[in-house]
Design a protein around this nucleic acid. Sequence first.
DNA 1: TTGCTCCTCACGTCACGTGAGGTGGC
DNA 2: TTGCTCCTCACGTCACGTGAGGTGGC
Lengths: 279, 279
Amino acid sequence: MTRQKLLKSEIVQLFNTTKETLRHYENIGLLSPEIDDNLYRFYDINELNRLRQIIVLRDLGFSTLDMKRILNGGIDKEAYLGMMKDHTRLLDHKISHLIKVRDETNQMIDLMSKDDFSLSFTIHEKHSREYILVNPFEIPVMDSLKTYYDTFSTLIKSEAYSEKTLISIFKYNSLDNFEKEDSRIGIEIDKGMSLSDINNTYETMSLTCGLYLSVFYVFKEGQMNDLKNLKSHVEAYLAANNLTVNSEYVVEIEHPELSILLADHEGLYEMQIKVSVCK
Amino acid sequence: MTRQKLLKSEIVQLFNTTKETLRHYENIGLLSPEIDDNLYRFYDINELNRLRQIIVLRDLGFSTLDMKRILNGGIDKEAYLGMMKDHTRLLDHKISHLIKVRDETNQMIDLMSKDDFSLSFTIHEKHSREYILVNPFEIPVMDSLKTYYDTFSTLIKSEAYSEKTLISIFKYNSLDNFEKEDSRIGIEIDKGMSLSDINNTYETMSLTCGLYLSVFYVFKEGQMNDLKNLKSHVEAYLAANNLTVNSEYVVEIEHPELSILLADHEGLYEMQIKVSVCK
DNA sequence: TTGCTCCTCACGTCACGTGAGGTGGC
DNA sequence: TTGCTCCTCACGTCACGTGAGGTGGC
């Protein structure tokens, strides 16, 4: 009679995993395959399905201890559904964060791959966003990290906060003849943050949801003239893609986290311009 | 004079991290903040930006050793871009896998949250998919795991393979009066798999890309009549959402990995029906 | 028989977390 | 001063991986 069950090596291939992983799950009592006289493991359909379950639970972020409680029936339906909802919500955040990291990195790769380091364009549908604006007289004070921290401490200490860089908001038209005075400095407020405190403390501004053109570019300190070139490139891109600018204001975001191989006086920036498709 | 730089606790709040993480990065030489007489750490803008970079690299899946090589300048632009491309590609796979896990789990939660365990519907745009079909005379043989493994070993041993359950393909109309003989058993082939080998070895069938209605339901062994009820529910959903069935064939996928709290004779299934929006 | 696959058991590792014990006004 | 925050150093932990040393024809 031929063998009915599967060997460890076969399970390893089926699930694209390693024998050490299977051994680990067995050691902690998550799997219990049949053990032969010569100590070979044999996995039947039940063990296979159990491993399938272990792997989904792992991908959802459960610990092996939680898995044991869930899979050994030490949990009722209510509790189980609650845990599942928590974990899918966490996964939601993780996924959208990873998508953001991936997209920004791809944009950086695209930009750096070009010989002339010029520009990289993408178009995305964006949610509405809210920004805290700093009073102009506070701008010089932003040179000190401590003042920066103190200025936004209410924001930073709140639950939903995640790390942000300062942004600039200015008028699209001022790109022609850019002066520092035309721009205002701000910081994004996370969704799900209680706005009541914030609105009392800070001046805010919001951008509506819709289609935005992201322009990634390398800015060399003091090279303000490059911004004029930038505008002509943007206009060319808009014309070629049948788009028009749809808002007076433009947001400029610094990406120091992506400037790894850039020189000290250079920085990677993203400009977001609201656009709409021409009819 | 007031303090200019940030304390460890302030960095912890800014980046939503822990002091142990910062200590770890310092221990291995990734961060080197200024150290005061009383051994307090002070972080300036350079350390802050470096931490920003460390965190993106971490999210992209780099090890701390790789981070050191990258951030300490031990790598040129070419190599850097290569590493970045590899990591964003890996992240792509990870993201799409996690999205699949999250969506399926949400569907399971939706279904299990209902009192009557009835049905859960969603509509998704799907890519085209290809299936290997098993000859009808091989079906009884599928009861043995080893034969299952041997039947698909070419497929399983190939690089791109990821774990799959068997699917059923049958005609939408046969849902009225379902007989086992009307269906065929198959297994999905991963994208990017070399089809040349496979097409010679196996009989294949493909489903076109487009809009699919996914119906999740719990099937109790032997309760074939439930399938008739299922059809009437599907028809009601289609009518209510202004949809029509757009293909002769329907795919049925078992989800043993989501059946964790179900009884032994019950299983969680998903039926995918190609639809189009009525004009 | 050889080479390949399976096994065990101890220890290693990666990225932190914990806990005891102590200083200092940041 | 008290309580809070900072520190160090050793050890713990989670989910595996590695490597030495040995069996068996799956």
